[in-house]
Design a protein around this nucleic acid. Structure first.
Lengths: 189, 189
DNA sequence: AACTTTATACAAAATAAAGTGTACGAATTG
DNA sequence: CAATTCGTACACTTTATTTTGTATAAAGTT
């Protein structure tokens, strides 16, 4: 294996590594391959190019990029002279990490608040029902307390999301070595 | 549907809700059902009881509980007079949240450090190879910079894990309403 | 030591998720 | 306005994960 091939192979290993990380985080590995492809090309790619680079179908690219846009880790880039959609990805690792988790957590909070409020409604109907026994009402009261505690917990997650999204987290846990390492965002290629 | 049944149905909805959350976080939904079952019973349960409560096979319970112990969200509880394994779960939502993510992130950091160090080794071999062209060496040098940046990033994640595990995160994002809500840990049942 | 009881390894089945190919509608071009 | 290009909806296939059933090993009991 010559040097050129060795470097290609390393690109491939990095790509797979990122894919594995995405899987660990509960996202499709293909997201990782897309990130790597765009990183290494160093420019916005269109769906055909991405399909080519990742060895996936164009259909799949369409799906994955939509997911990535939803998670705020990719965005359409305007490329003059082409009517294809081109995509760039967030190039700051830290930001990608933050976006993945915060958008996920935010979705969870939204969903759970809806469910909790419906449950709370049903429980209150029981505690206000004159035909319900004392025993039942007591139990319902306990569940109401649980539900309130859950709501408080979702508020906490929301606050946590804000800590990350506001970048305040970097005041608490600073990015390492801002002088020894390059100060700019790490870029591939 | 009578009141008793309504309360049962709410338990079931909460159970499914937690299951969905686990799926969102990239973990099997069954973990959520186990948490709910033990919460609602209010005591350590054995594998047979858990299988019964969650409607899963005993085999699956064995697997899931092992996973949960690995993620630090369940532990074996000693129950005198029984030789079955009994399990309790972490009852503090916040702690469960923290454990799930930190153990996951920690695994990612460990795995990636190993891979990066192997990649770094291969790249250094190229930069030190007298038969390699200048162009190749330059490219390798760029990849080395990338790899260093990645390492720094994994250090950051590790620090983030420490922020959560040390409970310091609660100094930054406090648990809400420590007086209005009950001060103790929320408990089901 | 034979008999239970319990947990889990292993293979197979069921379910869920990822990925593909065709087809169609919207936008663009000639 | 016919022809082309592009993205994606939809139905389908493939692959991966979850879950089960059987079999076995380890530990406890008689």
């Amino acid at each position: 294996m010559n040097h050129e091939e060795q470097l290609e192979q390393i690109k491939h290993r990095v790509s797979e590594q990122i894919a594995e990380n995405m899987k660990s985080y509960g996202f499709p590995g293909t997201i990782g391959r897309v990130i790597a492809a765009i990183y290494y090309e160093g420019r916005a790619l269109d769906l055909d190019e991405l399909a080519e680079q990742t060895g996936m179908s164009k259909t799949r690219m369409s799906q994955v990029l939509r997911e990535m846009v939803h998670y705020n880790i990719a965005e359409k880039a305007f490329v003059r002279g082409s009517r294809k959609d081109h995509y760039t990805v967030e190039e700051d690792y830290y930001q990608t990490f933050i976006s993945l988790f915060t958008s996920n957590w935010r979705d969870v909070v939204t969903r759970n608040r809806k469910i909790e409020s419906r449950i709370m409604h049903d429980l209150k109907k029981i505690t206000n029902d004159p035909t319900a026994t004392e025993e039942i009402k007591e139990k319902a009261q306990l569940y109401i307390a649980d539900s309130k505690a859950s709501m408080a917990y979702y508020n906490w997650i929301e606050k946590l999301v804000e800590l990350f999204e506001s970048q305040q987290v970097f005041d608490i846990v600073p990015k390492p070595n801002p002088d020894q390492e390059k100060n700019e965002v790490p870029r591939f290629k």
